[in-house]
Design a protein around this nucleic acid. Structure first.
Lengths: 139, 139
DNA sequence: TTTCATGTAACTATCATTGTTACAAATAGG
DNA sequence: CCTATTTGTAACAATGATAGTTACATGAAA
């Protein structure tokens, strides 16, 4: 995982939301959960809203809620919703024309390995849900 | 793979070295192979020397050579020699005391997934050797 | 209509990586 | 011994990605 902390932030606040799935949380509340800034929360959860995992409302009694039951949202769903990848695509993916034959074979071998790693990662985190995270809090 | 390009650079120049395993290459030659700077090459191959994959000599007729036969050096060896990881450890690995129970369970789940991904990645690239890369050049 | 919260743009701050310059140290060869 | 060459490494600048911050328009509820 690159050095992004979006996934950690998102899962942390979603874990809190999962404890009280019907109560709206403001970005300010959640920012203090994750020790960050409200705008960072809105940006991050905004992506998850597009992915259909949360809903948001404006104005008084607005805020954020889970779109589905916590049991039905896996860590992997969140990971995919944030469009995270284990690796960042080679920045010259299309630009670098690969002058050298070595680069071709190389790219293929590495790429294949990364794809397998991605699959292994996602299936490993598929088994944990937001409800599992929330359960840790209630003990 | 984070956004480091060390691995690509290293494998590219090692591929060239594998074509003529007994001939020393200077960092300047290799810098032009990989379109980078001689110092970057020395830094990168320096790590691989510590890992026992290459040797270096100073002064006239100095330069770099593979320490073993190209067939016996896999892409995975190089990856490990560079101490690369699919993920960078959470920068607060020891610092952040993890205030919240959610963070604990979370870290465990993610960490487990990353370890599996790492294993999958390495075993996928274990099968390609420097000789395989060099072979691409000779056709 | 007032209050509160999101949505978003714009900018700054940090940090990791890469590139560059400079130079000491070592080695081969005359 | 002297010189040319090459590594080894420090120090610093350039670049780019990510996160944090400020500011404000927009929308909704009471």
């Amino acid at each position: 995982m690159k050095r992004s902390s979006k996934l950690s932030i998102a899962l942390h606040v979603l874990g809190h939301m999962a404890v009280k799935p019907d109560e709206p949380f403001t970005s300010e509340q959640m920012a203090s959960f994750a020790a960050t800034n409200p705008v960072v929360i809105r940006r991050t959860l905004g992506q998850l809203r597009e992915a259909g995992l949360v809903t948001s409302g404006r104005g008084k009694s607005g805020g954020w809620k889970l779109a589905r039951a916590p049991e039905s949202i896996s860590i992997a769903d969140v990971y995919r919703g944030l469009d995270e990848r284990l690796y960042v695509g080679n920045k010259g993916g299309d630009e670098n024309p690969a002058h050298c034959a070595i680069e071709i074979g190389l790219a293929g071998a590495i790429q294949g390995g990364l794809e397998r790693a991605e699959v292994a990662f996602q299936s490993a985190i598929e088994g944990t849900s937001l409800a599992d995270l929330a359960a840790a809090l209630q003990r």
